[in-house]
């Protein structure tokens, strides 16, 4: 990650109650997040490690201003951001139960700015698991996913014909010569960067591989 996570206040998960009674088997938990010390909080990415949560829903409460389009007359500013995002392909099976997830702006159904608070709704319909929740929850302002290195130009301009033609008259001028040299230099750099990962297969240290016992680590 290249940027720092947002400072926020993550409340402990609560179990929704029915008629004031708490049932442990509701299969639902709610986590509220507020931003007491951030001016105009903006969220572009949510990262966490799953712990037996099957579905993940994200709701946001935003500041209602004059320009904000209202959704009906009783709009309190709640917006659905991510609806029932599936974290475990099968709630009864382990797969995906402890995977790391990054949910980015691309999965959000609306932009997250002018935030007041966020609400995470975690659902686990399977009674097989004693507990469920999220670990290592972090929010980021911008998408911090590693960008793909740009593709080389020859890859992109398939079929495009080169328009510019170079005229060669005797000795090339100093500009083209230097640019050629630069190209050569770039080529050398590129070769240096593309070292193969073929190893020499050495396993000993300084030619020595005398070992008595294995180490417990």
């Amino acid at each position: 990650m290249n940027n720092k996570p947002l400072i926020c206040n993550v409340k402990t998960a609560t179990i929704p109650t029915v008629d004031g009674r708490i049932s442990t088997q509701t299969g639902c938990k709610i986590i509220d997040i507020t931003f007491p010390n951030v001016v105009n909080p903006e969220v572009g990415e949510v990262c966490f490690q799953n712990y037996y949560v099957a579905f993940f829903t994200l709701k946001a409460k935003i500041k209602l201003t004059e320009q904000t389009p209202r959704e009906g007359p009783n709009d309190h500013g709640w917006r659905m951001v991510v609806r029932r995002y599936q974290l475990m392909p099968d709630p009864h099976a382990e797969n995906g139960a402890q995977d790391c997830f990054t949910i980015t702006r691309q999965q959000f159904s609306c932009d997250l700015n002018q935030l007041i608070s966020l609400r995470l709704i975690l659902q686990q319909p399977s009674p097989l698991w004693k507990d469920f929740g999220l670990e290592d929850l972090k929010l980021f302002k911008t998408t911090g996913a590693p960008r793909a290195p740009p593709l080389p130009s020859w890859f992109m301009e398939e079929g495009k014909s080169k328009a510019g033609k170079k005229e060669l008259e005797g000795v090339p001028d100093i500009n083209s010569l230097s640019s050629n040299l630069q190209q050569l230099w770039a080529l050398a750099e590129e070769v240096a960067a593309n070292q193969t990962d073929e190893s020499l297969g050495r396993y000993e240290v300084d030619g020595c591989y005398d070992i008595n016992l294995l180490a417990y680590s």
């Binding site: 396993y203 240290v205 591989y209 005398d210 070992i211 008595n212 016992l213 294995l214 180490a215």
Partner: peptide
């Protein structure tokens, strides 16, 4: 992979090898 150290260099990371 199991780890070990060259004889007499126990705990010195530069002499750690896989076995």
């Amino acid at each position: 992979p199991p780890k070990s150290y060259i004889r007499g260099k126990l705990g010195v990371e530069e002499f750690a090898v896989t076995y």
